[in-house]
Amino acid sequence: MSHLYSPFVTPSSSTNRMMLNVVIALIPGTLAYAWYFGPGVLVNVVFASALALALEAAVLLLRQRPLKPYLGDFSALVTAWLFALSIPMHSPWWLIATGIGFAMIAGKHLYGGLGFNPFNPAMIGFVVVLIAFPKEMTTWFAPAELTGQTLGLADSLRYLFGLGDNAQWDALTSATPLDHYRTSLGMDLTISEIRQSPLFGDFGGVGWEWIANWWFIGGVFLLLTGTIRWHIPVAMIGSLLAIATLFWLIDPDGTASPTFHLFSGGMMLGAFFIATDPVTAATTPRGRLVYGALIGLLVYIIRSWGSFPDGVAFAVLLANMATPLIDYYTQPRVYGELPEEED
């Protein structure tokens, strides 16, 4: 006789469905990315995903786990997709392989697989390649709006396998807006001078700001479907805006505006898709607020005073480290435990 236990109700959701929702929510932003910067990003996503699924299957075989339930949970797809969106397009295949390898093996399965990893696997992979391959990781392409052309699918594939044309390459690359800010501020230029650069749009970088808007829309979809809760994105964006506004009010010509911070780099993607990874985030209601706020704060600190132009990945990993501590100190009040007792 099968072992039966309450509750005898059909579950309303599944982890597979949650992960699938994340994948769906990533589609509009990814398409916008391809629209502004060419299909290179799609090549990244497809190659990284295929690699991640293959690695997941290989590790599962080594660990003697059933393939179907684990491969079918879409978590490898989400990790690969987020990693592919974080790195520069037209990255060489070995860079993607290194990152995905670290993400899937060191970041996920060495800890016991989905549910047991303390760090966001995609960010582990990203940080490894960021530190190991600084040249490749700082070679970004300019949006089509500025250069008038993007690389097509065939060219993208050529670059992926290191067969691209170097002359064409140099013509198309440029600094990211965050990078530009950083170098220009280093040269004592004022904000108004810096913003003369064609890289900047209405509130963020050209192209980037609109991709950020699409991440936001994907994030709203995740909120509406109950896939994520509001606490982390709101706290993360709120704390970044708060500290950015503070410094901007003090020195409006020497610091970037709060909206620029919000719409640049990995902030929007991070707030809705990366920091909200349930496995590695704080889980208590108050803890999620603390966790989100900590990431927002760290992003600003790393961007302003750290040695990297963007800080979302490092901020997320640092906050991951603090998660058990945050959860411990933010336990909710249990029914019957009155706040005024213990006198």
């Binding site: 889980t283 208590t284 009040r333």
Partner: peptide
């Protein structure tokens, strides 16, 4: 047929619905 069990992904939905306010 009971749906397959997966590992806990710490989503915290259980915390949101617990009437005893537990974790």
């Amino acid at each position: 047929h009971r749906p397959e069990e997966h590992e806990c992904v710490r989503c915290g939905r259980c915390t949101d619905v617990c009437p005893a306010q537990l974790l």
